[in-house]
């Protein structure tokens, strides 16, 4: 069902501005952190080989541990985002959508 709304008014609405601010900081933060953490792997393997060869648990070395941690970190980022989006952003959006036609 299509509704008629004043987009510019919603954009200026304090609730939408609050959503925009929180989402922007949060998403940029997560994205930049994820990219840096990802590129640490090839950089570390190429320029810090001695560190990557250090054994930490039996035959397992730091390199394997770090590569495995990339998976854990990716999942953690996904979990953190989803958790906050489900709890916070969705509620803020629902609030705006409910009043969308009234915001002029």
């Amino acid at each position: 069902m299509t509704i008629t709304v004043n987009w510019a008014a919603i954009d200026k609405d304090p609730r939408f501005q609050a959503l925009h601010k929180r989402k922007t900081t949060f998403l940029w933060g997560l994205m930049i952190f994820s990219l840096i953490y990802y590129f640490l792997l090839p950089i570390g393997a190429a320029y810090f080989p001695e560190l990557f060869k250090t054994k930490v648990w039996g035959a397992m070395n730091f390199g394997i541990l770090f590569a495995l941690s990339e998976f854990v970190v990716a999942w953690a980022v996904a979990f953190i985002y989803t958790h906050r989006a489900n709890r916070e952003f969705d509620a803020m959006v629902a609030d705006i959508v409910r009043d969308a036609e009234l915001i002029r």
């Binding site: 998403l27 997560l30 994820s34 990802y38 792997l41 390199g63 590569a67 990339e70 996904a78 985002y81």
Partner: peptide
């Protein structure tokens, strides 16, 4: 194994943006 990591990390961009 190191090579496979990027294929998963790619989905963070898909999810977030």
């Amino acid at each position: 194994f190191m090579y496979s990591v990027g294929w998963l990390v790619a989905y963070i961009a898909v999810l977030l943006i």
